[in-house]
Design a protein around this nucleic acid. Structure first.
Lengths: 258, 258
DNA sequence: GCAAATTTGTTCGTATGTATT
DNA sequence: CAATACATACGAACAAATTTG
């Protein structure tokens, strides 16, 4: 066999979608009908549909049928603006919502300790917020601070409520701490189980998430030192990221493909 | 059934990997042995292994067996440095290699036309290069320019060879064109078939790619206008991206998790 | 509200093909 | 060439979700 049968069936269905013969939202024939059409068993048809599902081209709904996927207008986050906090901007009008911070104190795992330059296991404060745009969960953000900041007097970091003027501004007026720069690091990975649940991602692991790790640096004699690190997790398929440099037009361009 | 049997088996295997009982590179028992152990049919075991495969936790090799995946040290690309060209920097010593540009002239598809502010179908020059680090394919870069630039005299854009001083510098001295800024847009998607082949990604669509769309802007009376657009495609699992802002330490920090 | 029909999800069994050792 | 292990394909049965009458 030059190529597996299920791949050829998937290819044929793919071209029907690409060509527009099957349009977004259209229902595909049922598995039994497809099996009849392609002279294949239901399991082979299922392999073909699975192949399309993994690429996000179709969506199977139990009890209903299989449908060609809808193109979703992605959210856009601009990483090059804002001086410290990673805030999210939608490219279309939408109501943004953010939950009250969920505050915790924990021993720093390695991936936090490495970023904050504290020993592994040191006490850190974490502040976790969930963000929604148009009622759909758009990101989860967890920020970690060294406990030293609280000992020095920044006790409001422990309050489970928004610091309206911004955490950076608060630390500035309270401790004289000044953020002089930050570094973002983007990585793509499969979602954890709780993330898949929160973002309502299919639990077959095909839909990845993007993590933006933003480390904030403060001034110091020997050069900048980190004082906080923020992990923001986005569902990769619904999100894009923009970084501007120099002079660029202000108008937000439409979503890019390619 | 509270939960599908294959999911419970996958969960059990997952915990053996997480706990370290099965270490990266270790061979798992064969499908028949696992079927015996969990009192499940071979097909059900295959469903469980498939679930782990989709998350990149194990790798199945025909004729050999199934193995716990190795953690690969990701490459890092810094988006905030370099004034125009998107060049790649490894975080570890490695020999970088880039192919000679493959030059083409084509009608602009919409995703290029939108970026370059030319009509769809207008003639554009594309220059395509493949990059390797340590012999492994690390990225594919395609840059598109409007044909107008050639008509104005920048004929070397058509040469299928590297422009050593850089394309921006060349356009500057030849046409007096000055790049005043650029905008990067990152998006994550499943690979095209040729990309999966080039990056040697599994063809089941689980391993996504990151596309960085960099639009370069030149000076103009009414504000900056685009004159070129570069699409750089990376295998998402082997790559991370860094954006610096303000004062940050120079030392390249290790790869982040979370 | 309930029952029937439709559709996808899971599991088993079996057979054959293909890649590697 | 033979043995082993994964890949593909078929058929069958029941479960779960949804819509319809």
């Amino acid at each position: 066999m030059a190529q597996a049968k299920y791949r050829k069936i998937a290819q044929d269905l793919l071209e029907q979608i690409r060509s527009g013969a099957v349009r977004p939202g259209d229902q595909l024939p049922s598995e039994l009908e497809l099996g009849d059409k392609y002279s294949a068993s239901r399991n082979t048809i299922r392999d073909a549909v699975k192949w399309l599902t993994l690429r996000g081209l179709v969506e199977a709904k139990p009890g209903q049928g299989t449908f060609a996927a809808q193109r979703v207008q992605p959210f856009v986050t601009t990483l090059s603006e804002g001086n410290g906090w990673l805030s999210e901007v939608s490219n279309r009008s939408g109501t943004a919502m953010v939950t009250v911070p969920q505050v915790g104190i924990r021993s720093a795992p390695r991936y936090i300790a490495d970023r904050l330059h504290v020993p592994e296991g040191a006490q850190v404060i974490t502040r976790r917020q969930e963000r929604y745009i148009d009622r759909t969960p758009s990101s989860v953000q967890t920020t970690a601070y060294s406990m030293d900041l609280v000992r020095q007097g920044a006790t409001r970091l422990l309050d489970a409520e928004n610091i309206t003027e911004g955490t950076v501004a608060y630390l500035g007026e309270r401790l004289g701490l000044r953020q002089v720069g930050h570094r973002d690091r983007l990585l793509v990975r499969p979602p954890e189980e709780d993330e898949a649940r929160f973002f309502r991602l299919p639990d077959d692991g095909r839909a990845p998430v993007v993590t933006v790790v933003r480390t904030g640096y403060r001034d110091h004699d020997d050069g900048p030192v980190p004082f906080r690190v923020t992990f923001t997790v986005f569902p990769a398929g619904r999100h894009q990221f923009v970084i501007d440099s120099g002079e660029v037009p202000k108008d937000p361009p439409g979503p890019a493909e390619g």
